[in-house]
């Protein structure tokens, strides 16, 4: 596919744009790169305060790790979710905000959303490294699972890029997209077991029974790709065991599908970007 090989050929440009994104973002701030850690941590503290004191949510202890710390459990899901949300948001804006570049210079357009994704990957990798240290400190054994975590991270990155690509193109045609995405991401956040365990949904679903035929609420719930990704991350990091096969395959499938669809949409529209922007 020429789209991908063109982008690979401009890997230096990719590296430079990624660097621009990273170092430009925190220029002239006292904390600099630390800000990328502050945000998820602050979010964690807020959720932890609300959901372990006020709305007492109690996820099952890690099995077999035995971990039983809500804040850590929360982080294991919150960091991948925040990564996904950031990639989609930044990727969506990547074409519109580089309008002047697209109109004046030829280069593989795919470089823009990919570099914005890579910039988020870098800060996410730092966050995940910190999380790993925390897990070790509180008595988990995440280190042996790290290679698999990296694979899962790669899959989630590809999935997020694919989704971001579609919205990036859509946003060029309809600037409403960015506002719509704000609402969509909020709904998606609550439809994903970030701040509550999946077992709560299973319980509600069991009480309601089948919705139509043999399809239950739980079956529908599990169609959410992010639910699968979060399950993979939590079993690897919090429980320290092999993730269930079906969710692993689902993660592969979703990543491949989203990326293929994203690239297809992007390749169909990239030539016209300079005109419609």
């Amino acid at each position: 596919m020429s789209l991908v090989s063109d982008t690979f050929r401009s890997r230096e440009l990719l590296a430079n744009l990624t660097r621009r994104e990273i170092s430009g973002k925190y220029k002239r701030t006292a904390l600099g790169q630390l800000w990328s850690l502050v945000n998820p941590l602050a979010q964690m503290v807020i959720f932890w305060a609300v959901f372990s004191f006020v709305i007492r949510i109690k996820p099952a202890p890690g099995d077999p790790s035995g971990l039983d710390i809500f804040a850590v459990w929360l982080l294991c899901g919150l960091l991948p979710w925040a990564f996904f949300a950031n990639v989609v948001n930044n990727g969506m804006a990547s074409l519109v905000s580089n309008e002047n570049l697209i109109k004046k210079v030829w280069f593989p357009r795919l470089v823009l959303p990919v570099s914005s994704t890579l910039a988020v990957v870098v800060s996410w990798a730092i966050e995940m490294a910190v999380l790993t240290v925390v897990l070790v400190v509180v008595g988990g054994r995440p280190l042996v699972w790290l290679p698999l975590v990296v694979v899962a991270m790669a899959l989630l990155a590809l999935f997020s890029l694919g989704v971001g690509l579609m919205f990036a193109v859509l946003n060029v045609y309809f600037r409403d997209t960015q506002h719509f995405i704000g609402i969509l991401m909020q709904a998606w956040f609550y439809a994903t077991p970030v701040i509550y365990p999946v077992s709560y949904v299973a319980k509600v679903s069991g009480e309601t029974g089948a919705l139509f035929g043999s399809v239950t609420l739980y079956d529908l719930y599990r169609l959410n790709p992010m639910e699968r990704f979060l399950e993979v991350f939590r079993t690897l990091l919090y429980d320290n065991r092999w993730p269930p096969l079906d969710s692993t395959l689902a993660a592969f499938g979703w990543a491949a599908a989203a990326l293929a669809l994203g690239l297809w949409v992007f390749s169909r529209h990239q030539r016209r970007l300079a005109e419609v922007l």
């Binding site: 401009s10 440009l13 744009l17 660097r19 621009r20 210079v105 280069f107």
Partner: peptide, 12 residues
Amino acid sequence: RENVYLNGSILG
């Protein structure tokens, strides 16, 4: 300096 590298790579 950083912009020379960035702009140069944009121009190929």
